[in-house]
Amino acid sequence: MSERAEERLPGVQYSRWSGIRKHTMLCCVSLVMLYPLLWMVSSSMKPENEIFTSASLFPSHFDLSAYKRGWFGLDVSFGRFFLNSLIVSVLSVIGNVMSCSLAAFAFARLRFPGRHLWFSLMLGTLMLPYHVVLIPQYILFLNLDWIDTFLPLVVPKFLACDAFFIFLMVQFFRGIPRELDEAARIDGCSAWRIYWKIMLPLSTPVLATAAIFSFIFTWDDFFAPLIYLGDPTHYTSQVALRSFIDSTNQSDWGGLFAMSSLAVIPVFVFFVFFQRLLIEGIATTGMKR
């Protein structure tokens, strides 16, 4: 002990075992947490009769027929549903990034009478539960004859209704040195040109974060499509999954798992490629997901 102790910092208790113990524990926790996800994916590739008879992750043989059954399990194919989800999500991303960055720029950078009032009202909407505006919005869209179209899902995104993203961007914009705006003003820029030529190019990290979260939230959104979409050809994948369990295909667990697995793929892909952005986004803003 005395021999090795010399290499160590004085008074600090080192234990190789505590490290191994921690790793073992963390690995167990990870395994327990991820097992259901892995089980879902593996079940989608198992022969139908194995799903509820074996907890194993490894099918006796790979059987991808569930994907085919699930894909055509409803009257409308899942290709349509995924396409619908994609359309709604992409439009939402565009809408959110555009409208929220405009508002955020005004709040973060422009000085105009009343901006403190509007900013606090904007923050207030962050706290307001969606359910309060839900029914009047529904009535409004009903009267506009927008029910059973994508408009109720997409138009609010173009009107900066997700205050959260405004807040996220305001935080980021405030971190960009004000001297850059001032230099640009002296260089003859209008507010619009500062926004377009200076602010946006310097904000790609936050724009990407907002875009990714916006995509994921919209892709996963269930409530709004559930209320606004009636015709199955307009369903998004989330609503379609729900009607899958409601339909007579109750017993087709393989198909259900197959489609569920497909439905989480886009989110998973973002997770794999943009993990760092997502984690930073959460760490800096305290997002709930």
Binding site: W219, D220, Q238, V239, M259, S260, A263, V264, L278, R289
Partner: peptide, 8 residues
């Protein structure tokens, strides 16, 4: 991240 979806 995945948790909010219907699939989960």
């Amino acid at each position: 991240l995945l948790g909010g979806s219907v699939a989960i």
